[in-house]
């Protein structure tokens, strides 16, 4: 779905008729001004976007100081004598755990799937599979949320959870009690969610590896897997890394599905069968009761963390995919 959006930063200069001077900026007509106005408006909106989110968060940062990052408490105080305590530590760790599990799944399963679609499926099925993957990438996250909550949570609570909790020697990882909504389930649902978009871009990147290279590898006597592992993947690695970064950015910013399958609990116990919270999910679950209180700036401050992380991810992934594309066309 979003693979078309990634070519933006690989500009090809507009070509003009030979011998004709480039129109100078002074010869702008009304049409050029309309375009410039749209562009300027967007620049203004983008600046306001960043500005508003940061500005609304300032009171919370000022009040909490560095404790906002190192504290795991979230107590809104309604008594003016008692200061509120807002700390984002457990949301940050919760986000890291869930998106870590998700990206692991997406990269391992997704790369295998992309390779299988590009090289193993019968030619006629390849377009069908690619179309299906792109359609699935458009399924809204709230749909994965209801699926996780209604279908998977009971299954986790009564089947998977007790089994994992009973494995001797892994209590430090899973804990000893089974829960429905938990980090592990959230990570798995998130993995399934970001998989289609990773595969959609990954498949495109893999397809851009030149046929000659693959045939050369095969004709040297390399097996099918050696060709994939030692020729295709190294050639496509920058693009695959970009696709992974993009998927990770989506995982970090995912909101409603996370608040549905992870629950909303703040604790310093990060065992995988415990409920927790992510940055985005916590904003959504607290939003209703936060209105009119000092919680709102604190939730905006969570948004600032989210914005810094996801925008830099987005920037990196764009650069990487664009670089891969340039390398492929040269």
């Amino acid at each position: 779905m979003s693979e078309n959006l990634l070519t933006v930063s690989s500009p090809t200069p507009v070509t003009y008729v030979e011998g004709r001077q480039r129109p100078s900026t002074s010869s702008r007509g009304p049409y050029e001004y309309v375009l410039l106005a749209a562009a300027s408006l967007f620049a203004l909106i983008a600046a306001y976007f960043v500005g508003t989110v940061i500005w609304r968060a300032v009171p919370a940062f000022r009040e909490q100081g560095f404790g906002f990052f190192s504290n795991a408490m979230w107590n809104a105080s309604f008594d003016p004598a008692v200061p509120s305590q807002f700390g984002s530590l457990s949301m940050i760790i919760g986000t890291l755990i869930t998106s870590g599990i998700a990206i692991l799944i997406a990269v391992i399963v997704g790369t295998g799937t992309a390779l299988a679609i590009s090289f193993l499926l019968p030619t006629r099925l390849r377009t069908v599979a690619a179309t299906l993957i792109e359609l699935l990438a458009a399924v809204p996250s709230v749909v994965y949320g209801i699926w996780g909550l209604v279908v998977l949570t009971p299954w986790f609570q009564y089947t998977v959870g007790p089994w994992l909790a009973g494995i001797p020697g892994f209590a430090w990882l899973f804990g000893t009690t089974a829960g429905g909504q938990c980090y592990l389930l959230a990570g798995l649902v998130l993995g399934a969610m970001i998989l289609p978009s990773y595969v959609a871009i990954g498949r495109e990147v893999i397809n851009s590896v030149s046929k000659e290279l693959i045939e050369a590898s095969l004709s040297l006597g390399a097996t099918q897997w050696q060709t994939l592992w030692k020729t295709v993947i190294p050639t496509a690695r920058i693009g695959l890394f970009g696709a992974g970064t993009l998927a990770l950015g989506r995982a970090i910013g995912e909101t409603v599905a996370m608040s549905m399958v992870l629950g909303s609990a703040l604790s310093t116990n990060y065992q995988l069968l415990k409920p927790g919270a992510t940055l985005a999910g916590w904003i959504a679950t607290q939003w209703g009761e936060a209105q009119g209180s000092s919680q709102v700036p604190a939730l905006f401050a969570l948004g600032v963390i989210l914005m810094v992380v996801s925008l830099s991810m987005s920037l990196i992934s764009n650069r990487l995919v664009a670089r891969q594309r340039r390398a492929a066309t040269l």
Partner: peptide, 18 residues
């Protein structure tokens, strides 16, 4: 162009905050 490419990946909840 850079701003557009970056904003494409912004989480939707941030637009809610905005």
């Amino acid at each position: 162009r850079l701003v557009v490419a970056t904003m494409v990946g912004a989480p939707s909840i941030l637009m809610g905050l905005f």
